[in-house]
Protein backbone atom coordinates (compact mmCIF):
# COMPACT_ATOMS: atom_id res chain seq x y z
CA UNK A 1 0.00 0.00 0.00
CA UNK A 2 1.25 3.48 -0.88
CA UNK A 3 2.71 5.39 2.07
CA UNK A 4 0.78 8.49 2.99
CA UNK A 5 2.74 11.28 4.54
CA UNK A 6 0.62 13.40 6.83
CA UNK A 7 1.13 17.09 7.59
CA UNK A 8 1.07 17.68 11.33
CA UNK A 9 0.12 21.11 12.55
CA UNK A 10 1.39 21.50 16.15
CA UNK A 11 -1.28 20.87 18.75
CA UNK A 12 -2.70 23.72 20.75
CA UNK A 13 -1.21 24.51 24.10
CA UNK A 14 -4.52 24.22 25.87
CA UNK A 15 -4.56 20.47 26.25
CA UNK A 16 -3.56 19.49 29.74
CA UNK A 17 -4.06 16.36 31.81
CA UNK A 18 -5.25 12.98 30.59
CA UNK A 19 -6.69 13.33 27.07
CA UNK A 20 -9.11 10.50 27.82
CA UNK A 21 -10.69 12.14 30.88
CA UNK A 22 -13.43 14.71 30.25
CA UNK A 23 -13.13 17.93 32.22
CA UNK A 24 -16.37 19.48 33.54
CA UNK A 25 -17.53 22.71 31.89
CA UNK A 26 -20.74 24.68 32.34
CA UNK A 27 -22.91 26.19 29.63
CA UNK A 28 -22.63 29.97 29.64
CA UNK A 29 -24.95 30.59 26.71
CA UNK A 30 -27.07 28.62 24.22
CA UNK A 31 -28.12 30.45 21.08
CA UNK A 32 -30.40 29.03 18.39
CA UNK A 33 -28.98 29.66 14.92
CA UNK A 34 -31.45 27.86 12.61
CA UNK A 35 -34.29 25.38 13.16
CA UNK A 36 -31.79 22.54 13.82
CA UNK A 37 -28.55 24.29 14.66
CA UNK A 38 -27.45 26.03 17.84
CA UNK A 39 -24.32 27.54 19.34
CA UNK A 40 -23.07 26.63 22.80
CA UNK A 41 -20.71 28.95 24.62
CA UNK A 42 -19.00 27.09 27.45
CA UNK A 43 -16.97 28.23 30.43
CA UNK A 44 -13.51 26.88 29.58
CA UNK A 45 -12.22 24.21 31.97
CA UNK A 46 -9.22 26.38 32.86
CA UNK A 47 -10.52 29.73 34.10
CA UNK A 48 -7.09 31.35 33.84
CA UNK A 49 -5.94 30.35 30.39
CA UNK A 50 -9.18 29.35 28.73
CA UNK A 51 -8.85 26.74 26.01
CA UNK A 52 -6.30 27.84 23.40
CA UNK A 53 -6.79 26.13 20.05
CA UNK A 54 -5.81 26.25 16.41
CA UNK A 55 -8.59 27.06 13.90
CA UNK A 56 -9.89 23.72 12.62
CA UNK A 57 -9.43 21.75 15.84
CA UNK A 58 -12.25 20.01 17.65
CA UNK A 59 -13.15 18.84 21.13
CA UNK A 60 -15.05 15.79 22.37
CA UNK A 61 -18.19 17.02 24.12
CA UNK A 62 -19.63 14.66 26.65
CA UNK A 63 -23.28 14.77 27.57
CA UNK A 64 -23.23 12.89 30.87
CA UNK A 65 -25.15 9.67 30.82
CA UNK A 66 -25.72 9.97 27.12
CA UNK A 67 -22.56 9.94 25.06
CA UNK A 68 -19.70 11.86 23.55
CA UNK A 69 -19.45 13.64 20.18
CA UNK A 70 -16.63 15.35 18.26
CA UNK A 71 -17.50 18.99 17.58
CA UNK A 72 -15.24 21.60 16.01
CA UNK A 73 -14.48 24.73 17.92
CA UNK A 74 -16.24 27.56 16.10
CA UNK A 75 -15.20 30.54 18.22
CA UNK A 76 -12.42 33.09 17.89
CA UNK A 77 -8.94 31.64 18.48
CA UNK A 78 -7.91 35.04 19.84
CA UNK A 79 -10.54 34.75 22.58
CA UNK A 80 -9.80 31.36 24.25
CA UNK A 81 -11.88 32.28 27.31
CA UNK A 82 -15.01 31.67 25.23
CA UNK A 83 -15.23 28.02 24.22
CA UNK A 84 -17.73 28.06 21.36
CA UNK A 85 -19.27 25.17 19.41
CA UNK A 86 -21.98 25.29 16.77
CA UNK A 87 -23.90 22.06 16.62
CA UNK A 88 -26.49 20.56 14.36
CA UNK A 89 -29.05 18.46 16.21
CA UNK A 90 -29.04 15.16 14.32
CA UNK A 91 -29.11 12.30 16.81
CA UNK A 92 -28.97 10.82 20.27
CA UNK A 93 -26.38 13.22 21.74
CA UNK A 94 -26.74 16.38 19.68
CA UNK A 95 -30.55 16.52 19.96
CA UNK A 96 -30.74 16.56 23.77
CA UNK A 97 -27.84 19.05 23.80
CA UNK A 98 -30.14 21.50 22.07
CA UNK A 99 -32.47 21.52 25.06
CA UNK A 100 -29.80 22.13 27.70
CA UNK A 101 -30.11 25.09 30.03
CA UNK A 102 -27.61 27.76 30.97
CA UNK A 103 -25.48 26.53 33.86
CA UNK A 104 -25.86 22.84 32.95
CA UNK A 105 -22.68 20.79 33.05
CA UNK A 106 -20.97 18.95 30.17
CA UNK A 107 -17.64 17.19 29.88
CA UNK A 108 -14.98 18.30 27.41
CA UNK A 109 -11.80 16.65 26.11
CA UNK A 110 -9.32 18.28 23.80
CA UNK A 111 -8.63 20.29 21.73
CA UNK A 112 -7.65 17.59 19.25
CA UNK A 113 -6.53 17.27 15.67
CA UNK A 114 -4.82 19.28 12.98
CA UNK A 115 -5.79 22.81 12.05
CA UNK A 116 -6.14 24.93 8.93
CA UNK A 117 -2.73 25.92 7.49
CA UNK A 118 -2.81 29.56 8.60
CA UNK A 119 0.97 29.93 8.54
CA UNK A 120 1.47 28.39 5.12
CA UNK A 121 -1.34 30.56 3.78
CA UNK A 122 0.36 33.81 4.80
CA UNK A 123 0.87 36.11 1.80
CA UNK A 124 -1.38 34.01 -0.40
CA UNK A 125 -4.89 34.40 -1.77
CA UNK A 126 -7.44 32.46 0.26
CA UNK A 127 -10.51 30.71 -1.05
CA UNK A 128 -12.86 29.26 1.55
CA UNK A 129 -15.61 26.93 0.36
CA UNK A 130 -18.15 26.00 3.02
CA UNK A 131 -21.40 24.08 2.88
CA UNK A 132 -24.14 23.83 5.50
CA UNK A 133 -22.81 23.24 9.03
CA UNK A 134 -19.31 23.15 7.45
CA UNK A 135 -19.09 26.90 7.98
CA UNK A 136 -18.71 26.30 11.74
CA UNK A 137 -15.23 24.68 11.64
CA UNK A 138 -14.14 27.42 9.21
CA UNK A 139 -15.32 30.34 11.33
CA UNK A 140 -12.23 30.39 13.60
CA UNK A 141 -10.13 30.53 10.43
CA UNK A 142 -12.19 33.47 9.13
CA UNK A 143 -11.77 35.28 12.47
CA UNK A 144 -8.05 34.67 12.24
CA UNK A 145 -7.79 35.92 8.65
CA UNK A 146 -9.83 39.04 9.40
CA UNK A 147 -7.83 39.68 12.57
CA UNK A 148 -4.57 39.57 10.60
CA UNK A 149 -5.98 40.75 7.31
CA UNK A 150 -2.83 42.46 6.05
CA UNK A 151 -0.93 39.16 6.20
CA UNK A 152 -3.04 37.58 3.47
CA UNK A 153 -3.89 38.26 -0.17
CA UNK A 154 -7.43 38.26 -1.52
CA UNK A 155 -9.92 36.49 0.72
CA UNK A 156 -13.02 34.89 -0.79
CA UNK A 157 -15.65 33.11 1.25
CA UNK A 158 -18.11 30.96 -0.69
CA UNK A 159 -20.97 29.47 1.27
CA UNK A 160 -23.70 27.09 0.16
CA UNK A 161 -26.79 26.31 2.18
CA UNK A 162 -29.99 24.43 1.65
CA UNK A 163 -32.41 27.36 1.89
CA UNK A 164 -32.31 30.96 3.17
CA UNK A 165 -33.62 29.75 6.56
CA UNK A 166 -30.66 27.34 6.84
CA UNK A 167 -27.98 30.00 6.41
CA UNK A 168 -25.64 29.84 9.39
CA UNK A 169 -24.15 32.99 10.99
CA UNK A 170 -26.24 35.13 8.67
CA UNK A 171 -25.47 38.43 10.39
CA UNK A 172 -21.76 37.73 10.40
CA UNK A 173 -21.79 36.75 6.74
CA UNK A 174 -23.52 40.04 5.99
CA UNK A 175 -20.98 42.00 7.99
CA UNK A 176 -18.00 40.20 6.40
CA UNK A 177 -19.59 40.81 2.98
CA UNK A 178 -19.84 44.51 3.81
CA UNK A 179 -16.06 44.81 4.10
CA UNK A 180 -14.09 46.01 1.11
CA UNK A 181 -11.31 43.50 1.68
CA UNK A 182 -13.33 40.27 1.64
CA UNK A 183 -15.53 38.76 -1.07
CA UNK A 184 -18.46 36.86 0.35
CA UNK A 185 -20.87 34.88 -1.85
CA UNK A 186 -23.78 32.86 -0.57
CA UNK A 187 -25.71 30.46 -2.74
CA UNK A 188 -28.64 28.29 -1.82
CA UNK A 189 -30.12 25.14 -3.31
CA UNK A 190 -33.61 26.57 -3.72
CA UNK A 191 -35.66 29.46 -2.38
CA UNK A 192 -38.99 31.23 -2.45
CA UNK A 193 -39.32 34.43 -4.48
CA UNK A 194 -38.30 36.70 -1.60
CA UNK A 195 -34.65 35.58 -1.88
CA UNK A 196 -32.49 38.08 -3.76
CA UNK A 197 -29.25 36.13 -3.74
CA UNK A 198 -27.76 33.37 -5.90
CA UNK A 199 -29.43 29.99 -6.38
CA UNK A 200 -27.53 26.84 -7.33
CA UNK A 201 -24.60 24.85 -5.99
CA UNK A 202 -21.61 26.33 -4.22
CA UNK A 203 -19.19 25.03 -6.87
CA UNK A 204 -20.89 27.34 -9.38
CA UNK A 205 -19.47 30.30 -7.43
CA UNK A 206 -15.90 29.15 -7.96
CA UNK A 207 -15.95 30.14 -11.63
CA UNK A 208 -16.23 33.80 -10.64
CA UNK A 209 -13.73 33.83 -7.81
CA UNK A 210 -10.84 36.27 -8.12
CA UNK A 211 -7.57 34.67 -7.13
CA UNK A 212 -4.09 33.95 -8.42
CA UNK A 213 -4.46 30.17 -8.72
CA UNK A 214 -0.75 29.43 -8.35
CA UNK A 215 -0.59 31.47 -5.17
CA UNK A 216 -3.84 30.41 -3.55
CA UNK A 217 -4.68 28.22 -0.59
CA UNK A 218 -8.19 26.81 -0.69
CA UNK A 219 -9.88 25.41 2.40
CA UNK A 220 -13.15 23.58 2.32
CA UNK A 221 -15.51 22.00 4.79
CA UNK A 222 -18.94 20.56 4.20
CA UNK A 223 -20.53 17.37 2.91
CA UNK A 224 -17.84 15.14 1.39
CA UNK A 225 -19.45 15.17 -2.03
CA UNK A 226 -19.44 18.96 -2.02
CA UNK A 227 -15.75 19.02 -1.11
CA UNK A 228 -14.98 16.53 -3.86
CA UNK A 229 -16.64 18.63 -6.54
CA UNK A 230 -15.23 21.86 -5.11
CA UNK A 231 -11.75 20.33 -5.33
CA UNK A 232 -12.28 19.41 -8.97
CA UNK A 233 -13.51 22.88 -9.79
CA UNK A 234 -10.49 24.37 -7.99
CA UNK A 235 -8.22 22.07 -10.02
CA UNK A 236 -9.90 23.36 -13.18
CA UNK A 237 -9.13 26.90 -12.07
CA UNK A 238 -5.48 25.91 -11.74
CA UNK A 239 -5.30 25.34 -7.98
CA UNK A 240 -3.43 22.03 -7.47
CA UNK A 241 -4.26 19.46 -4.78
CA UNK A 242 -1.19 20.53 -2.77
CA UNK A 243 -2.91 23.89 -2.19
CA UNK A 244 -6.30 22.50 -1.21
CA UNK A 245 -7.20 21.53 2.37
CA UNK A 246 -10.29 19.59 3.37
CA UNK A 247 -11.80 18.81 6.76
CA UNK A 248 -12.91 15.18 7.00
CA UNK A 249 -15.56 14.61 9.61
CA UNK A 250 -15.67 10.87 9.98
CA UNK A 251 -17.35 9.42 13.03
CA UNK A 252 -14.90 8.84 15.88
CA UNK A 253 -14.70 7.72 19.48
CA UNK A 254 -11.39 8.02 21.33
CA UNK A 255 -10.08 11.12 19.47
CA UNK A 256 -6.45 10.14 20.14
CA UNK A 257 -5.82 7.53 17.44
CA UNK A 258 -6.25 4.46 19.63
CA UNK A 259 -9.62 2.95 18.86
CA UNK A 260 -9.42 2.93 15.06
CA UNK A 261 -13.03 4.08 14.70
CA UNK A 262 -12.18 6.94 12.37
CA UNK A 263 -9.58 5.20 10.24
CA UNK A 264 -9.41 6.75 6.79
CA UNK A 265 -7.09 4.82 4.52
CA UNK A 266 -3.85 4.58 6.49
CA UNK A 267 -4.68 7.67 8.58
CA UNK A 268 -6.89 8.42 11.55
CA UNK A 269 -9.14 11.44 11.15
CA UNK A 270 -8.92 12.27 14.88
CA UNK A 271 -5.13 12.63 15.13
CA UNK A 272 -3.90 13.00 11.52
CA UNK A 273 -6.91 15.19 10.62
CA UNK A 274 -9.56 16.40 10.56
CA UNK A 275 -7.80 18.92 8.27
CA UNK A 276 -5.85 17.15 5.51
CA UNK A 277 -3.96 18.47 2.52
CA UNK A 278 -5.85 17.00 -0.38
CA UNK A 279 -2.94 15.36 -2.20
CA UNK A 280 -2.17 13.31 0.94
CA UNK A 281 -5.58 11.67 1.05
CA UNK A 282 -6.60 11.91 -2.59
CA UNK A 283 -6.27 8.16 -3.23
CA UNK A 284 -9.05 7.59 -0.68
CA UNK A 285 -11.18 10.64 -1.36
CA UNK A 286 -13.60 8.99 -3.71
CA UNK A 287 -13.29 5.32 -2.82
CA UNK A 288 -16.71 3.97 -1.97
CA UNK A 289 -15.52 1.42 0.58
CA UNK A 290 -13.80 4.02 2.81
Amino acid sequence: MEQIEVVHVPKAEGMTGDPMVPRPVSIRELQHETHDTFTLTLEPPDRDQGLPFIPGQFTMLYLFGNGEVPISISGDPAAPMRLVHTIRAVGSVTRPLQDMQRGSMLGVRGPFGTGWPVEEARGKDIVIVAGGIGLAPLRPLIYHLLGQREDYGRVSILYGARSPADILYRRELESWGGRFDVDVSVIIDHAATDWYGDVGVVTALLGKVRCDAGNTIAMTCGPEIMMRFAARELNDLGVPDEQIYVSMERNMQCAVGMCGHCQYGPTFVCKDGPVFRLDRIKPFFSIREI
Partner: peptide, 18 residues
Amino acid sequence: HRSLQATQLQLLDVYGAN
Protein backbone atom coordinates in the same frame (compact mmCIF):
# COMPACT_ATOMS: atom_id res chain seq x y z
CA HIS B 1 -23.59 20.06 -18.90
CA ARG B 2 -22.75 22.14 -15.83
CA SER B 3 -26.35 22.94 -15.22
CA LEU B 4 -27.31 19.27 -15.36
CA GLN B 5 -24.54 18.36 -12.91
CA ALA B 6 -25.58 21.13 -10.55
CA THR B 7 -29.18 19.95 -10.71
CA GLN B 8 -28.10 16.43 -9.81
CA LEU B 9 -26.19 17.73 -6.78
CA GLN B 10 -29.17 19.84 -5.75
CA LEU B 11 -31.35 16.73 -5.99
CA LEU B 12 -29.06 14.96 -3.52
CA ASP B 13 -29.93 17.60 -0.94
CA VAL B 14 -26.36 17.39 0.31
CA TYR B 15 -26.85 19.81 3.18
CA GLY B 16 -29.88 17.95 4.53
CA ALA B 17 -29.65 15.94 7.77
CA ASN B 18 -28.42 12.39 7.19
